[in-house]
Design a binder for these strands. Structure first.
Lengths: 345, 345
DNA sequence: CATGCGAGTGTTATCGCTCACAACCATATC
DNA sequence: GATATGGTTGTGAGCGATAACACTCGCATG
């Protein structure tokens, strides 16, 4: 187990003060010190003061390894995040961490370039050895579900993943991607568009799948023809490429892009080709990344509340740890209307 | 100490197998199991096999709390990151984590909305209690330096901060912001621009300070007049505002924006005002955020290698832990020339 | 053949903390 | 005044690992 290999670095540091030292200085037993530290009620105010003074004087800090050893609770939650640069919402991580912190947990972060069985196994192995009390998986890849299943039996796991059925050991939470796609598509339909093309994200990503499904479903519900989706990754470069092709080979009435980067590439390609947005074609994105309000033209898009997502994920994980029932209701996104959409020509 | 409050949640779990159990099953002593686990050389191959088989059979995993208790090494590095949404390079965090992981450490992440003395103290208190062997501070705020100094005496700390002198207990590392600003400014000068305005980021951020200093120094070195900088935050919204004012009240020959978001806002404002970029005014940004190649026009900007930065930060921290000499050489950025810059009119 | 050595293994102490329980004291109760 | 009661404190036993040391071999060495 390479990751658990003994850490051979490090210089020796002098032994920091232990509870015992505090106790001696305060003239009490170590147990009394422990009680003060743990806010045990039955400690005389005067004694408490003495202990606190001794703690301050020595600069004592509780050793959490020793504590974890005896309590069997590490106070650590693991977070595994995909390290793909195209998945960027730092805000999810921040929200995850601050929610965990507020609940008295600390967060151990691990990143993974891909979610192969071996990689995932190694990470969970690591978290298990660390005594993590639960894990949040931030990786909206389809492959993740099956990969982590065996580990979800060993400790509570919440995955940030759209469109997964909740199981007994499997706790997905996400922004409702399908709804977001429906909102975008519905809006375009309301504007009179009848030829709404979807630039589809990589289908091994949950989010991309769900956005595709939502777009398709909304069109079908409205009785509008469903054109063939155009496959893409998540990049502006690919959006640009597609935009150029569309401008050359015939424009649809509107384009719903799987994310804002793709939309940005489309906008650029249309601009270069002399295609007017929204005059000739309307464009909608997804994510509401910083700056999308200042694209040319400002982008109509679907906003996801990543911080709320993070908080909810931790809330679910804590509930799972406590064996309480979980609420898997996805978080609703919101359509942000800007200048890139207009009435059908 | 609220963050160290006992974690009161959690259901009881059955006691996982310990070394003792493995030892009994394998018919050896627990010490032999320990030797196998730590790759001690003096274990007979046959014995090792037996132990490994027992480990596999029981699903044994080493308890890192117990290990940390006796070795006095937690194998944990702390990372404090500012939770400001305008500071977005997830890639730094990812690089930090993977470099730490590769060195056999795990990463405990904490985020902070601001770097007040109390907040920072609490975080370091937490890391110290956790037994973290070192800390990386990702928060390029000027205030950080003094705030963390007292803690830097207690454990090795590396800060990602530009333009700080390295001290004995203070180990800054960063991309060379000043150089980046110089590269951008120099390029504009070479294009013939003689009126190069700087839209300056918040001056309590190191990066913003250094970019300002670099811009100014390069102009002075070239004997070009230094106009008054325009103050801004980091947002596209503010860039837009400034762009409108400039278009109304008189355009400079070129604008060097403190980051790409500001540049994006400028571009949008100029476009709306019918100002041609780079025909009427050249624009340079900083960061090379995803998509900046597809702005209208594509943005000339300064690229920072955040992943390299993260790796180097961990390298320095490990060196500091080992008491080895550190290399504080900043990482050079690179100018990426695109369509938003052209010869002076 | 006694001695030394190193490989392989076991025994014991210890890390710093919490838990369970015992002990003590002062007050309340009968 | 003896007994219960409860707040306050101390004692001792682990938690699960590593470190230090002791022991037992087998083999080379003199």
């Amino acid at each position: 187990m390479p990751d658990d290999a003994p850490v051979t670095r490090g210089r020796k540091r002098p032994r920091p003060p232990a509870m015992h030292d505090v106790a001696r200085l305060a003239g009490v037993s170590h147990q009394t010190v422990s009680r003060v530290l743990n806010d045990h009620p039955n400690v005389r105010a005067e004694t408490r003061e003495k202990v606190l003074a001794a703690i301050a004087e020595l600069g004592y800090r509780r050793n959490s390894a020793a504590r974890a050893l005896v309590t069997r609770r590490s106070g650590v939650l693991g977070v595994v995040m995909i390290s793909a640069p195209e998945f960027g919402p730092t805000s999810t991580i921040i929200a995850l961490e601050s929610a965990a912190h507020a609940a008295g947990y600390s967060v151990s972060l691990t990143t993974l370039p891909n979610f192969s069985v071996e990689q995932v196994a190694r990470v969970f192995e690591h978290f298990l050895a660390l005594g993590a009390e639960g894990v949040v998986v931030v990786a909206p890849l389809s492959s993740v579900a099956e990969t982590i299943r065996p580990f979800a039996l060993q400790l509570p796991v919440v995955t940030i993943a759209a469109g997964q059925p909740a199981g007994q050991e499997f706790h997905p939470i996400s922004v409702d991607q399908q709804l977001g796609a429906r909102l975008a598509t519905r809006y375009l339909i309301e504007l009179g568009h009848r030829e709404i093309v979807h630039v589809r994200g990589p289908q091994d990503w949950f989010d991309a799948q769900q956005r595709y499904v939502g777009w398709r479903a909304e069109l079908e519900d409205a009785g509008v023809a469903v054109p063939e989706p155009i496959d893409a990754d998540w990049s502006a470069a690919r959006g640009f490429e597609i935009g150029r092709e569309l401008a050359r080979e015939g424009l649809p009435s509107a384009v719903f892009a799987a994310n804002d980067q793709l939309a940005l590439g489309l906008l650029r390609a249309f601009f270069e080709a002399g295609v007017s947005v929204p005059g000739d074609v309307s464009v909608v994105g997804f994510d509401d990344i910083p700056g999308s309000a200042y694209f040319s033209p400002p982008l109509t898009t679907v906003r996801q509340e990543f911080d709320r997502l993070g908080r909810k994920a931790i809330g679910m994980l804590l509930a799972a740890i406590d064996g309480e029932p979980l609420d898997h209701t996805p978080i609703p996104p919101r359509l942000v209307v800007r200048g890139s959409t207009g009435a059908a020509r």
